[in-house]
Simulated scan of single mutants.
Amino acid sequence: MTARDGALFPREAAVIAPGAVHVPGWLSPERQRELVAACREWGRGPVPFRHTRLPGGGVMSVRTLCLGWHWQPYRYSRTADDVNGARVAGLPGWLVELGRSALVAAYGDGGPGAAEGPAGEPGAGPERGYTPDTALINFYDDTARMGMHQDKEERSGAPVVSLSIGDSCLFRLGNSVSRGRPHTDVELVSGDLLVFGGPSRFAYHGVPKVYPGTADPACGLPRGRLNITLRETGLRDGEPLAGRPPNPAPG
């Protein structure tokens, strides 16, 4: 099924891999517009969106903005040393609460991932103790892509919460061993929620394709795709993390 079929065939929440749950249409159009407006405001600084340069010399095609902690391959820090040296904006409490609500939607009692939640026990209250302290916001234009990679610069194994706004995309969730098969392809539409934790927390994943012109005008983003990912770094001030073994994510 594609986004173009959505009006005829309602999409249902589903477990796409152990610990990985897709909840279509989780964000209302109003909430999407609020997030788009917030991203525009964050993009004015103190650290703007930028194309991240990889250690090998390549430049990612997506543009990235960070809150709470600044990510660059393969480390986190409080200041954007690869951009302008400024301290990144803080992660607002309402965004933390949104992440907790997302975990309930994906892993809560009766939800599609209830038996596959981070604690492995239905009804364990997955939102309890979940305190994301960074957000990576990626903007995809018509030609941007994200190569297969792992999110493994964090010391915490808490789930990653991913929110999609704007144009639809093809999201590929692979395995935790290599960038190759097996993998599962899912079309993410504006307003969709994807949570991956547990056995899928360190699975390779990427975005091989964006579908230009597919966004619902009601989302407030006329062109392109915003992806907001919330994560727990497990870090404290004064201890920037030099990442785990290099893991290029060309995009």
Rank of each mutant, 00 (worst) to 15 (best):
A114W: 05
R100H: 04
M148S: 10
C39D: 02
T52V: 15
V47A: 06
P250R: 04
N84I: 06
P118S: 07
V21H: 05
T229A: 13
V161D: 02
E116T: 09
G93P: 03
E153N: 13
R31V: 07
E41R: 15
M1C: 11
V104A: 11
D167G: 08
L67K: 08
T52E: 13
Y140L: 02
P248Q: 08
G174L: 08
G174K: 05
D216Q: 05
A102C: 10
Y211N: 03
E187S: 10
G99C: 00
R236M: 12
G147R: 00
V104N: 08
G129H: 02
V62C: 10
R223S: 15
S164P: 01
P199V: 09
P48I: 03
P217Q: 06
E187L: 09
P245L: 14
Y204G: 03
L136Q: 03
A7F: 10
Y74D: 08
P217W: 01
G198C: 05
E41A: 07
A3S: 14
H183W: 12
A38C: 14
Y74M: 07
T233E: 07
R31P: 02
A115I: 14
G57D: 04
G43N: 07
N138K: 05
L136C: 11
N138H: 11
R236E: 15
N175F: 07
P217G: 07
A124M: 09
L163A: 04
A106K: 01
P126S: 06
I165T: 01
E153K: 06
G220F: 00
V15C: 14
G198I: 12
A80K: 04
G93N: 10
L95M: 08
R63W: 07
P245N: 10
R4W: 13
E97Q: 12
D237W: 10
P248T: 11
A114V: 04
L67D: 06
E239A: 13
V21A: 06
E97C: 06
L98W: 03
R145E: 15
G234N: 07
L91C: 13
A242I: 09
G117E: 06
R50H: 15
R145V: 13
S61M: 13
G213Q: 05
A135C: 15
R44S: 10
G111D: 14
N247R: 09
S190Q: 00
P48Q: 05
P29T: 03
L173I: 01
D109G: 14
S164Y: 00
